[in-house]
Amino acid sequence: MSHYRGRFAPTPSGPLHFGSLVAALASFLDARHAGGEWLLRIEDIDPPRCPADAADQIRHQLEAFGLHWDGPTLYQNGRDGTYQAALERLVRLGLAYPCSCSRKQWRDYPIYPGWCREGVREPGKPVAWRLRSDLGLRPVVWKDRLFGEQRFDPASLGDVVLRRKDDLWAYQLAVVVDDAEQEVGDVVRGFDLLDNTPWQRQLQQALDFPEPRYLHLPLILGKDGQKLSKQNLAPALPTTDDAVRPLLHAALTALDQAPPADLAGAPVAEQLAWGVLHWEASRIRPEPHRTITGGAPPSD
């Protein structure tokens, strides 16, 4: 893929927070600096976790920060046929299998032991579908744009679930299928997903999909040392202009882009124009996580 195409793909389990903003902004700036496209995908494959208005709230928050995407928004919910076709292909290749085991049954093991690889252990029970991590690409080696060469044996990570027992699709398969269909060539996301990449590379190879470039970002921690997340009740991003401007400047700072201090009060469009012009991913310090101190977002 010669033309840059990136994406931001939040799960609409709640509103965006400052950690989400840092990830979205990095992805946006990386795409715009390269003169490329930036897509928005809503990863709503788990409807019970996704309030009805969360996706619209996320879109409104992105627009308030000037992060306008190209083309229509892709929603994962309702794409069963596309994911099913990919799963069936993996089954034909002998790389996916049904599994009746529960987490409670293998709780004394660090990873799922693969008990159902040669046949369902408890026929008649509901099954999930797992990836045969021991048969695909091994080892998986790639060069992360920030953290350098990465090498993993996916078999040491276990046979990841592709479809759950409740028939909902799992993240690993959906993200790979959608990145390929949308021709995403550059993935910018948090460090917490770095060790998901080996499974995704296995799936990409098995399904004959292109391999995107990866840039994993340091995770943003709050003053309490916890990752900013919806689960940890991180405050939602505001959408009023007077609150947005300093937070956008704080996000540029968190990405080590060293924006001028007087830019903090500038309109959103001006800050983003500066960010696009001066963006250098290589400035980001390659740390798994960092704690927000000065210029921190507001907290409840």
Results as ranks from 00 to 15, higher is better:
residue 154 P to M: 09
residue 160 V to H: 05
residue 22 V to L: 14
residue 298 P to H: 14
residue 200 Q to I: 13
residue 34 A to T: 11
residue 35 G to M: 05
residue 2 S to L: 10
residue 167 D to M: 13
residue 163 R to N: 06
residue 67 L to I: 14
residue 111 I to N: 12
residue 107 R to G: 05
residue 297 P to C: 07
residue 78 G to L: 11
residue 49 R to S: 11
residue 108 D to T: 15
residue 222 G to A: 05
residue 285 R to C: 06
residue 62 L to R: 11
residue 6 G to W: 01
residue 50 C to M: 00
residue 146 L to C: 12
residue 244 V to D: 00
residue 236 A to N: 07
residue 246 P to N: 03
residue 286 P to S: 10
residue 161 V to L: 12
residue 163 R to V: 08
residue 54 A to W: 02
residue 144 D to H: 04
residue 23 A to H: 06
residue 24 A to L: 13
residue 46 D to Q: 10
residue 216 H to P: 04
residue 228 L to G: 06
residue 155 A to C: 12
residue 14 G to M: 05
residue 127 V to P: 08
residue 241 D to E: 14
residue 293 T to F: 09
residue 283 R to C: 12
residue 87 L to T: 01
residue 97 Y to N: 06
residue 2 S to Q: 15
residue 279 W to M: 10
residue 146 L to I: 15
residue 235 P to R: 09
residue 113 P to S: 14
residue 159 D to G: 14
residue 163 R to G: 11
residue 80 D to C: 08
residue 136 G to R: 01
residue 196 N to V: 00
residue 213 R to P: 01
residue 12 P to M: 12
residue 49 R to M: 10
residue 281 A to V: 01
residue 284 I to V: 15
residue 274 W to R: 12
residue 137 L to H: 09
residue 165 K to F: 03
residue 16 L to N: 02
residue 227 K to S: 06
residue 197 T to W: 05
residue 42 I to N: 07
residue 274 W to N: 12
residue 118 E to M: 13
residue 75 Y to T: 09
residue 16 L to R: 13
residue 39 L to C: 12
residue 206 A to L: 01
residue 222 G to W: 03
residue 254 A to Q: 10
residue 106 W to N: 06
residue 141 V to E: 15
residue 275 G to K: 06
residue 4 Y to Q: 05
residue 255 L to A: 11
residue 142 W to S: 01
residue 240 T to I: 02
residue 3 H to P: 09
residue 136 G to W: 01
residue 285 R to A: 14
residue 67 L to T: 14
residue 167 D to E: 13
residue 192 D to A: 01
residue 256 D to Q: 11
residue 129 W to A: 02
residue 295 G to E: 04
residue 14 G to H: 08
residue 135 L to I: 00
residue 114 G to K: 15
residue 25 L to W: 00
residue 238 P to G: 06
residue 73 T to H: 03
residue 202 Q to H: 04
residue 11 T to S: 15
residue 138 R to C: 12
residue 297 P to Y: 07
residue 190 G to N: 04
residue 121 R to S: 13
residue 152 F to W: 12
residue 258 A to C: 04
